[in-house]
Write a protein that binds this DNA or RNA. Structure first.
Lengths: 193, 193
DNA sequence: CGGGTGACTAAGCGCTTGCTTACTATCGCT
DNA sequence: AGCGATAGTAAGCAAGCGCTTAGTCACCCG
C-alpha cells in the first residue's frame, strides 16, 4: 500500500524545490519550505539529498541536458538551415513556455551554484549557444540568411528564447501559438524568405 | 575636508547595494556585505536607510523611472513609427547594456520587493510595455509595419531589450554596436522596409 | 566656551538558517 | 522469530541574519 503512495519521496522533494526556487529564488527558499511543500519534516530532505545546493545542481543539470538534447534533435532533423532554425526556435520557445517554472530556475539561479557546478553548467550552455550560432552561420554561408552580424543575431535568438521563461505566464498565449510567432520573428531576424 | 570626501554616504550605500544585489541577488546579499562595500559598519546602513528592502525599492524605483523616461523621450522625438521604433529600441538596448549591473537588479529582483512596492513597480512596467505596444500598433495601422500579431511582437521586442541586462558583459560588444544591430533586428521583426 | 546636532560604531538581541544527531517504525529476508 | 536496511522524525546546534541600542566623536552656533 505505502509502496505506491509514498514512492518517489526524492522526486517529490525535487519537484517542491523547483517550485519554491522558481517563486522565491534559491536564497529566498529555506530547506524547511521545500520539505513542507513535499509533506515531510525538514530532516527528510537530507535522507534523500546531500544539500540544498545539490538540489539546485540536480535541477539545473537536468534542465540544461533536456534543452541541449532538444536543440540537437531540432538540428538533426534536416540539413536545410531554414528548416533547422524553424525547428530550433519553435521547440526551444515551446519548451520554455510549457516548462517556464523550471526554466526560470534553470536560467536565473545560475549564480547560486557552487563554482564547480557552475562551470559544468556553463559548458552545457556554451554548447547550446554553439548550435544556434552554427545554424545561423551555415544559413548565411548558404546564402539563405542575410544578417550583418551572424554572431550577434545568434545571441539575440537565444536571448529571445530564454527570456520567455521570465515573463511567460499561461493564461495569455498557448505555447504553440507563441512558438509559431517566434519562428516567424526568427526567420525575419536572419533575413530568410 | 571631511565635508567633501565623506559626502554622500547614503549614495555610497546605495551604489554598494546595486553591485551586491546584481552579483549575489537580494536574498544572497547581507546588510553586512553592503555596509562593508561602502566602507562602513553594519549599523551605518540604518542611519541612512530604513531597511534592506527599502534599498531595493529605491534602486528599482529609480531604475524604472529612468527607463520609462527614456522610452517616452524616444517616442516623443517623432511621429513616424519607423523613427520612433529606431530610437526606442536603440536607446533601450544601449541603456540596458551600459547599465547592465543596475538593470540586472531592476529586472530580476522584482520578487523580493514588498507587495505594495511590487505593485507600484509593476505599474511603471505596464506603462513601458504600453509605449512599445503603441508604436507597433500605429506602425501596423499606418501600413509601414507588417506582423501577424502586433501584441506578441511588442512583447518580444521588450523581452529582447530587457534580456540584454542578463547576458551582456562589456568585453564583447560596444553598447552602440549592439544597439545598432538590435535596431536592425527590431525593424525586421515588425516587417519594416 | 557650552550645549545641541548629526554621523557613525561596538556590541548584541532575538530569530532563522542549513544541517546533524539520536532515535523510532516498517519493511524484506533467512 | 530475529536481523539488517531503509525511511522517516523530533530536537537541537552553531552560525549567520536583519535590525536595535546605547554610546562616542566631530562639528556648528550662541
Amino acid at each position: 500500500m505505502t509502496a505506491e503512495v509514498n514512492a518517489g519521496a526524492r522526486e517529490r522533494l525535487l519537484a517542491a524545490a523547483v517550485t519554491a526556487f522558481s517563486v522565491k529564488g534559491f536564497h529566498g527558499t529555506t530547506t524547511r519550505d521545500i520539505a513542507a511543500a513535499a509533506g515531510m519534516s525538514p530532516a527528510a530532505l537530507y535522507v534523500h539529498h546531500r544539500s540544498k545546493e545539490e538540489l539546485l545542481h540536480l535541477i539545473s543539470r537536468e534542465g540544461h541536458d533536456r534543452t541541449l538534447a532538444l536543440c540537437r534533435a531540432a538540428v538533426a532533423a534536416s540539413d536545410d538551415p531554414v528548416v533547422q532554425l524553424t525547428a530550433l526556435v519553435g521547440d526551444f520557445v515551446h519548451h520554455h513556455a510549457v516548462n517556464h517554472v523550471s526554466a526560470r530556475v534553470v536560467n536565473y539561479e545560475l549564480a547560486a551554484l557552487a563554482p564547480d557546478h557552475r562551470a559544468e553548467i556553463d559548458a552545457v550552455r556554451h554548447q547550446i549557444d554553439g548550435i544556434v550560432r552554427d545554424v545561423v552561420d551555415r544559413g548565411v554561408r548558404a546564402g539563405v540568411f542575410t544578417t550583418p552580424d551572424p554572431l550577434m543575431t545568434a545571441a539575440a535568438l537565444v536571448s529571445l528564447g530564454v527570456d520567455v521563461a521570465r515573463w511567460y505566464d499561461e493564461p495569455g498565449w498557448p505555447p504553440a501559438a507563441l512558438a509559431d510567432h517566434y519562428v516567424e520573428l526568427a526567420l525575419r531576424m536572419v533575413g530568410a524568405g
